[in-house]
Amino acid sequence: MSQPDLLLPHGRILRYHFHERLTHWVAAGSFIYLMLTGLAFWSPWLFWLALVFGGPQISRTLHPWAGLVFFFAVSYMYAMWSAQMYSTENDKEWWKNIEHYTKNEDDRMPPVGRYNPGQKLLFWGFVFCGLLLLASGVVLWFPEYIPWNLRLLRYAAVIVHPGAALLSIGLFMIHIYMSVFAERGAFGSVIRGDVSVEFAKRYHPIWYKEVVGDSTNPPK
């Protein structure tokens, strides 16, 4: 069972459709804005970031709205990708060999499908952080409407929001590192949408087989 519509000329395979790429960049753009304005309020030493984004008042006003954009993008990602993100039997084996993965010995890793277990974890991490950030962010958005006897909500929000933000910033750093620096060729997949046959074979061999099927003449 192959997916010939994903095979492109010049030995390229389509990894992300236009709507997938667009969603990715809506999420990425809003996240970067949220991270930088959020960090401005997190630390006095980074407060200048808020000035860069047009002043602290504007940053305060727009941050929650950008948060809604981010949350909707993540929800849409959930709708698009969650089915492929559940772990399989194979994943345990992969985690056992994680050391080889970190040492770039990818040939010693068990073969993976469209997403490797690390990518799956990243996805669920962002979904989880997105939910926490939304819930705590709404409380921070309207502190003046939280009555005095419900102030525990506010106390919880000032811990949960930065906590989830830190967690997601950690995921974000690893995500950038892997997709821009470590796996050369991955970045193009969210820009132009395609990857090389070599890339697919090397990092996602099961997915590669799914795409080309048993075809005896793989894409040239």
């Binding site: 040492k103 770039n104 990818d106 590192y177 620096f181 470590a182 090397r202």
Partner: peptide, 14 residues
């Protein structure tokens, strides 16, 4: 530091 030590997952390396 990881990048300094291991670099990219480059085809050639492997």
């Amino acid at each position: 530091i990881h990048y300094l030590r291991f670099g990219p997952k480059d085809r050639e390396d492997q």
